[in-house]
């Protein structure tokens, strides 16, 4: 089929590139499920197990999903944040100190959100007003935030004794875990924010062509700062979600979350150079990764193999993306 025919078909079905990519990711999910069915048919024979397994996948995707939404904003806005795992660790540790726990569940939630926001603001100020390259600024934050988390916790695992927090991970309103509801709300809010608000429009403009945005009167620096602040806030929320799942927090928590979040955003169709990205794609990216993790878990396979497969998927996704983009631009040149 010629490229023109593909485009004609896309037009007929009213599909844009993003929809095509998302359909592709759904296809990947289907393939993964099929592999699961083929490898463990006895498990998939039990409908209750299947239902619970899907909820497990979603629950495992919840915290990283929230981070990926924030990451999508940062990358679309032309930046990158390598410090998200470290911010989560710092927020998690800070909110589970004995002193913080004495203020109850709301105190802990408030602390996690404020710590996340504050670290995000520091990142943003360094990048937009200090003119540090985002890669460097957040790399420095990655090291120092985890260091501070280790300092605060004395390298000990801090157990949460707050039942309200611990129950967040186990309550199931309408049969669906609260954390999954939370992810759904964040994804929906992120979609609206990116696609339907002035904030989202500015994000695309700042990432797509900062000079054009500046000359159109958009305050690029302030907006960049706000993007990192939003990222920090997402990390604070993710810290609470992870703490409730583990009923504890430690300086090593959320390890390599930055890589998972960036990878999920990228295979979801977010352009690493900024200016283009979708929240729905990012969600699918997260789901693909957590489904793979689950697939390996039910087959009792090692996480080492799992990491190699993840790496392969990232490379494949970006290659496909580049190929599609190239064929599209060639089409336009003709």
């Amino acid at each position: 089929m010629t490229a023109e025919a593909v485009r004609a078909r896309q037009r007929r079905w009213n599909l844009d590139d993003n929809a095509v990519r998302n359909l592709g990711l759904v296809g990947v999910l289907v393939v993964l499920v099929v592999i699961g069915v083929v490898t463990r048919p006895e498990l998939y024979a039990d409908p209750t197990w299947v239902r619970n397994n899907v909820l497990t996948i979603l629950q495992q995707a919840s915290a990283i999903g929230v981070v990926t939404v924030g990451m999508t904003f940062v990358i679309v806005g032309g930046g990158i944040d390598l410090s998200v795992g470290a911010i989560i660790a710092l927020a998690g540790v800070w909110s589970t100190t004995l002193a913080t726990q004495s203020y109850g569940a709301l105190g802990m939630i408030f602390t996690a959100l404020v710590v996340g926001l504050a670290v995000g603001v520091v990142n943003g100020v360094l990048i937009s007003y200090g003119r540090l390259v985002p890669f460097i600024a957040t790399l420095a934050m990655l090291v120092s935030a985890r260091g501070l988390a280790a300092q605060i916790s004395g390298k000990q695992t801090q157990v949460s004794t707050n039942d309200t927090i611990n129950n967040l991970a186990t309550t199931r309103p309408l049969g669906i875990p609260l954390l999954v509801w939370l992810l759904a709300v964040v994804v929906a809010a992120g979609w609206v924010l990116l696609n339907r608000t002035t904030f989202g429009r500015r994000t695309v403009a700042v990432g797509g062509n900062p000079e054009a945005a500046r000359l159109a009167g958009i305050n690029v620096k302030r907006h960049t700062l706000m993007l990192y602040a939003l990222m920090g806030l997402c990390c604070g929320l993710a810290a609470i979600m992870l703490t409730s799942q583990a009923t504890s927090a430690q300086a090593a928590m959320a390890n390599l979350y930055e890589l998972d979040a960036i990878a999920a955003a990228i295979i979801g169709g977010t352009l690493l150079s900024g200016g283009r990205g979708t929240i729905v794609g990012a969600l699918f990216g997260v789901l693909v990764f957590s489904t793979i993790t689950n697939l390996f878990a039910i087959n009792n396979l090692s996480t080492e193999v799992q990491n190699m497969v993840k790496g392969g998927i990232i490379v494949a996704a970006v290659l496909i993306q580049q190929f599609r983009y190239r064929s599209l631009t060639q089409l336009l040149k003709r």
């Binding site: 695309v204 797509g208 062509n209 054009a212 945005a213 159109a216 200016g275 283009r276």
Partner: peptide, 23 residues
């Protein structure tokens, strides 16, 4: 390099300086 978001639709480029006023 200084004025256009090349991948964005024309109308978003046209309203780049005024979209906040429409919102």
């Amino acid at each position: 390099s200084q004025a256009l978001l090349l991948d964005e639709p024309v109308y978003k480029n046209m309203t780049l300086a005024s979209f906040a006023g429409f919102a």
